[in-house]
Each structure stands twice: as structure tokens, then as C-alpha cells.
Amino acid sequence: MSTPREHIIKSYDDELTRLTGEIVRMGELAVTQLEAAIDVIERRDERAAQRVVINDDAIDHMEQEISHDVVRLLALRAPIAGDLRNVFAALRIAADIERIGDYAANVAKRSIPLSMVAPVTPTRSLGHLAELAAAEVRTVLKAYQERDAEAAYKVWKDDADLDDAYTALFRQLLTYMMEDPRNITPCTHLLFMAKNIERIGDHATNIAENVWFLVHGEPLTKQRVKRDLTSSPDMEPPV
């Protein structure tokens, strides 16, 4: 028979496990939203895009529930040290996932006016960008669930690949707009959508930093390589 203290510890561990599971499910829903947004772009389906936007409410609700659970854990368990890191990491990671869901919804919103104009070739490149971002989020969620700091660090480091893809698409879109003014409207929508997807990668790296801190108890102090060159004054489309 367990002592009262052992029972309390087991109960707390169960609560943390449940909280982690809820965050992972929330993250998977956010990734599914991104993939659905890309799908409606390719199908030029306005109604499906509106459903993706509406479904973002579910992610917002999950984030609110997780915040409530975190406050309850703080009040009832008064965690310290590593336990406190677990609780605060959950709160911060949930906030990042909520933003990922927002960006996926933004992509879906942009797909509605995009479907009303003639399609342009760079639209296909948006799918590749989204695949990279979705893979980052799924990998970092697994790292969080397994408390795998090294896997999280790899996501943090490899986000530069997403930056490269975003910069290449940015240049391609500029070229299309310069070649034909009729491309300006669809390419402008695609620019905003691409930026939303690039930001999803940034939130994946935020989650990776939180996993690192959760496991090691110290922040990830290395300087992350950023290869998003779109804000550079030298940015020009390829000749």
C-alpha cells in the first residue's frame, strides 16, 4: 500500500502526463489545420477554407483549457525546480501552438480571395514550404513528449532550411510580379501566406527552446542561424 506522499507524487505525475498529452494533441490539430489550408488552396475551395478558419476556435479553446490546468497545478501542487519548469513550459508551448493555429487560419483566409483570380505557378511552392513547417512542428512535439532535448535542438538548428525555402519563394514571387502586373494580386496573397508559414517555423523553434530549458534547466544560449533574407535591402529577384 502506498504512503500518502507517494500517492500525491503519482497523482502529480499523472496530471503532468495528461497535460503533456493535451498539448501534443493541440499541436497535432494545429498541424492538421495547416495541411488543410494548403489543401484548400490547391482545390480552390472557398467553403472548405471557411471551415478551416472556423476550426481555429477549437485550438483557442484547448489553449484556454490548458492555461486553466496550469493555474490549477500551480495552486494545488506548488511545484518547484524541475516540476515548475514542466508547468511553465506547458504554458509557453501551448501559447506557441495557439499562434501556429492562427497562422494556419490566416493561410486559409488568404486562399479565399486567391481562388478568385487566375492561378500562378509559385502556388505549388507554398505546399513545399508548408511541408517543412509541418515536419518541424511534429518533430518538436515528439521531442517535447519524450523530453528529448537533442531532437528539439535539431529542429531549432534546421529551421534555417525553412528560411532558405521561404527566401527562394519570396524571390520567385517578386519575379512573377515584375514580369506581369496581372500577377501582382495573387502573388501578394502568396507572399503573406508564405510569411505566415515561415512564422510557424519560428514558433516551432520557440517550442524547441522550451524543451531544451525543460530538460537541462538552462536556456539555449547559442545564436540561431537565420537565413530569411527577405528584409535585406539587397534582396532582388533573380535575373
Rank of each mutant, 00 (worst) to 15 (best):
3 T>S: 15
5 R>H: 13
6 E>F: 08
7 H>V: 13
8 I>H: 15
9 I>T: 13
9 I>W: 09
11 S>I: 10
11 S>Y: 12
17 T>A: 10
19 L>Q: 08
20 T>R: 12
23 I>F: 06
23 I>L: 07
23 I>W: 02
24 V>T: 06
24 V>Q: 03
25 R>S: 03
31 V>N: 01
32 T>P: 05
33 Q>T: 04
38 I>G: 00
38 I>S: 01
42 E>N: 12
43 R>Y: 03
44 R>E: 02
45 D>H: 06
48 A>S: 13
50 Q>I: 09
53 V>N: 08
54 I>K: 15
55 N>R: 13
61 H>K: 15
63 E>Y: 03
72 R>G: 08
73 L>T: 08
74 L>Y: 04
74 L>N: 00
75 A>P: 00
75 A>D: 07
79 P>T: 04
82 G>F: 13
86 N>M: 11
87 V>Q: 05
88 F>K: 07
89 A>K: 01
91 L>K: 04
91 L>V: 02
93 I>P: 04
94 A>R: 04
102 D>G: 02
102 D>I: 03
103 Y>W: 14
104 A>L: 09
106 N>K: 10
106 N>W: 04
113 P>S: 04
113 P>W: 03
117 V>M: 15
122 P>Q: 15
123 T>H: 07
124 R>V: 14
130 A>R: 05
131 E>N: 12
132 L>A: 09
133 A>I: 03
134 A>K: 01
137 V>K: 01
137 V>G: 00
137 V>T: 04
139 T>S: 11
143 A>N: 00
143 A>I: 01
143 A>C: 06
144 Y>M: 01
144 Y>C: 03
145 Q>R: 09
147 R>T: 02
151 A>H: 06
152 A>D: 04
153 Y>G: 06
154 K>G: 03
159 D>K: 01
160 A>S: 15
163 D>H: 09
166 Y>H: 08
166 Y>F: 11
168 A>V: 09
168 A>E: 10
170 F>I: 01
170 F>L: 05
171 R>Y: 06
174 L>Q: 05
175 T>A: 12
181 P>N: 12
181 P>G: 11
182 R>Q: 15
182 R>H: 15
183 N>C: 12
184 I>P: 08
185 T>E: 11
189 H>Q: 14
191 L>H: 13
191 L>K: 10
193 M>E: 07
200 I>M: 03
200 I>P: 01
201 G>D: 00
203 H>E: 01
204 A>R: 00
206 N>E: 05
207 I>A: 01
208 A>S: 12
208 A>Y: 03
210 N>S: 14
212 W>P: 00
215 V>E: 00
216 H>Y: 10
218 E>C: 08
219 P>T: 15
220 L>F: 10
224 R>M: 09
224 R>D: 04
226 K>Q: 14
226 K>L: 14
229 L>Y: 10
229 L>Q: 11
230 T>R: 12
231 S>C: 11
231 S>D: 13
232 S>V: 04
232 S>R: 05
232 S>P: 14
237 P>N: 14
